[in-house]
């Protein structure tokens, strides 16, 4: 299957995005911010439709909108209690804007489907390079801030006392999540970003007890799921997003079910 250009592009794009989303997802799950990831993906849809409306590539609309929303959420939701409210407000406003764009934009159906569900087989070479650039940038920032981010995530009160700015790292991290969301949306679409960002990370959290191995496993699982998903799509002609999501769900179930079943058994 590698004799086709579109397959090589698809594998390259999936590799970049999976490594990024697996690593970022680990911290997202650890921080209990999966709702933020979910909201950012939907906000991204608005950005993408807005970009299409003014004749710009949807990816840039996605990037701009998700990063802006991520930073806003980080600023307004420093404390856990306010977090969901801040996210909800940003989400509602973005969806209202999206509705407005839809109102102005007519020839929409195919574009919208691609945005919502992604189509990795349609990714071209220039998009691969863009993904590589943004992905490398996000991973580099994540690597640089990972230690204080971990500290602030696990023990916010203590981290603050040790001079770690909770707000700074909260904002920076959500900006990275936003970039990751925009990247994921290219592969699986905004509706299924969860599959690549949360699924592998949540499974990895179940299987590991140390941070480093957890992040590596999460990225590894995302990679395998993306590769297998595309391969299955190639041979079955079913949508790749379906396969990737199905694999992600299956792996997560594999991670949690044995323990759940054991817990159900009478001692």
């Amino acid at each position: 299957m590698f004799e086709y250009d579109f397959m090589r592009n698809a594998f390259a794009a999936a590799t970049i995005v999976a490594l990024l989303s697996g690593s970022v997802g680990y911290f997202l799950v650890l921080r209990g911010q999966t709702f933020a990831g979910h909201a950012l993906a939907h906000v991204g849809f608005t950005g993408a439709t807005g970009a299409v409306l003014i004749g710009v590539a949807p990816l840039w609309g996605l990037v701009l909108m998700t990063v802006a929303a991520g930073v806003a959420m980080g600023f307004f939701g420093e404390h856990l209690a306010q977090r969901d409210v801040a996210i909800g407000l940003v989400l509602a406003f973005a969806l209202a804007l999206g509705l407005l764009f839809l109102h102005f934009y007519t020839a929409f159906a195919t574009q919208a489907t691609t945005l919502l569900f992604g189509n990795v087989l349609a990714v071209d070479v220039s998009t691969v390079y863009t993904l590589l650039g943004l992905g490398a940038l996000s991973l580099a920032i994540l690597a640089i801030i990972s230690r204080p981010l971990l500290f602030a995530s696990l023990q916010p009160e203590l981290a603050e006392a040790k001079g770690v700015s909770l707000r700074l790292y909260g904002v920076l991290f959500l900006a990275i999540v936003a970039l990751t969301t925009a990247e994921c949306a290219q592969i699986v679409g905004v509706l299924l970003v969860f599959a690549l960002m949360i699924g592998p990370a949540a499974a990895a959290q179940q299987w590991t007890s140390a941070v480093t191995t957890g992040v590596l496993l999460s990225a590894g699982l995302a990679l395998v799921e993306a590769w297998c998903g595309i391969t299955l799509a190639f041979y079955t002609d079913w949508p790749s997003s379906f396969w990737i999501t199905a694999l992600s769900v299956a792996v997560y179930l594999l991670a949690v079910l044995p323990r759940r079943l054991r817990a159900l058994q009478p001692v």
Binding site: I144, R147, F151, L154, A159, V164
Partner: peptide, 13 residues
């Protein structure tokens, strides 16, 4: 372990 050098930038290794 997250507290060890937790305020410094870098990888948590």
């Amino acid at each position: 372990a997250s507290v060890a050098n937790g305020h410094r930038l870098g990888l948590p290794i």
